[in-house]
Design a protein around this nucleic acid. Structure first.
Lengths: 240, 240
DNA sequence: CCGCGTCTTGCGTAAACCCGCAGCTTGTCG
DNA sequence: CGACAAGCTGCGGGTTTACGCAAGACGCGG
């Protein structure tokens, strides 16, 4: 068995290397990449079937790398190993997992034991292993209670990118009014009103901007999500 | 000599511990904190004069911790050790450095050698050591070429928080029109127009929202900056 | 087939935003 | 002192947002 490690922090990389060796005696070669771009290349060259991947790397983040890798070889098993359980990450990952693929999401704060167990479960048993903390988010996020619909999330991203209502309408093939409806829906769920209306008239918020802010503060959005969204937007702008 | 390490990643923490031991033989005790809150407390209890501090910690980030520490004991020497050189961090740090204090800013990607050198320079020689990459940012940011004035940055933060023009005016003691002037200035510098105006009329941006987005993409803002700004805002809201 | 809930769309209005124009206040420099 | 640049402010008007109201459109269980 061959394992590819994609991780930009040298300390974490060597820690992972050791963990893999300890957990998987049947693994004979470990290769390392220090960013997403290199990771993709190595995965392609070695036809890697087992990958441990950091999210949040400077050059090209883990989600993008995973997406292209899975596009080429959907049966690849990927264990995401991340510092954070931002809803933005969780949502980003679950959007790109191919049907039936085995993958995992383990936090860096997890114990050695948990990491090793996850490595075995995914790479040997082909089982999905999702950190319970992440799992919790997933439930809440996909279940509708207090969670965001895809369409709500979509419009959140659109205003976060700075599009006008009209531009969004064009992009999503909706009427102006529908876009605004969804916005109101979003404002509702994000609780932008309470902080806005408050008691007197003076301390009011710009709902649109405020929505983005609280989404950020709640980790519904983060840098990497913005980055990806911006790339998609540019792509769309090309094709008129 | 006693050194306090504030860093939430265990691997990095022990790496730092070793580096301190190697670089500073005169150091007899090393204490560790795994987040900003604990860091503050230990610094107070031990009257620490030498601190190595991570920025970006979950519980309470390095900048906040450093600020309260410096407020209590401005002569404390702090070495910031960070993964990133976001302009938001650099600006955040230089805003809180007391006059004449010795401090440092070293990236985690720096070599062992550089780290050890920085440790000696700051803790023994009381010299400031700023990573050259960070230094570059500082120059550009504080020099006016392509850099942002404090007032521009201030208003950027305000719209990022989601305040209305009126609210900003009230907060900063300006007229509505002045706020809008500054906004225009900001839009100019952030180049929000080019991408907006484009060729035809349809693909337009909401300038206000777009400004925040590009600021984020350029790392002029980041989560931690937003978090701090939000806290300050809440504080201001209390005092009416 | 009907009734009901959810989603979409158009109309209309009040507020907020973007911004050109022009008069004022300051601070700086020769 | 006068000139000039930089910043604050009010006025006015064109555009965009936020949102209530109400008329379809679609799906679904009875």
């Amino acid at each position: 068995m061959k394992v590819l490690i994609v991780e930009d922090d040298p300390l974490h990389r060597s820690y992972l290397h050791e963990a893999v060796n300890a957990a998987l005696p049947e693994c004979d070669t470990v290769i390392e990449a220090e960013n997403g771009t290199v990771g993709e290349k190595l995965a392609r060259d070695h036809k890697s079937a087992h990958i441990v991947m950091d999210l949040q790397m400077a050059n090209r983040n883990g989600i993008e790398a995973a997406r292209t890798i899975w596009k080429e070889r959907p049966e690849t098993r990927i264990l995401f190993w991340s510092n954070y359980s931002d809803e933005a990450y969780v949502r980003g990952v679950s959007r790109i997992v191919p049907d039936g693929a085995a993958y995992g999401y383990v936090l860096k704060s997890a114990s050695d034991e948990r990491l090793k167990l996850a490595l075995r479960s995914i790479f040997v048993e082909s089982q999905c292993v999702i950190d319970r903390e992440v799992r919790g988010l997933q439930q809440k996020s996909l279940g509708q209670t207090n969670g965001f619909t895809d369409s709500e999330y979509e419009i959140l991203v659109d205003i976060a990118l700075g599009l006008t209502d009209r531009a969004i309408a064009k992009r999503r093939n909706l009427s102006l009014r529908s876009v605004q409806n969804r916005l109101q829906q979003l404002y509702d769920k994000l609780d932008v009103y309470q902080s806005a209306g408050d008691d007197h008239e003076d301390g009011r918020f710009n709902l649109r901007a405020r929505a983005v802010t609280v989404a950020f503060l709640r980790k519904l959005l983060n840098y990497s999500a913005l980055e990806r969204a911006e790339a998609e937007l540019q792509e769309w702008l090309e094709g008129r």
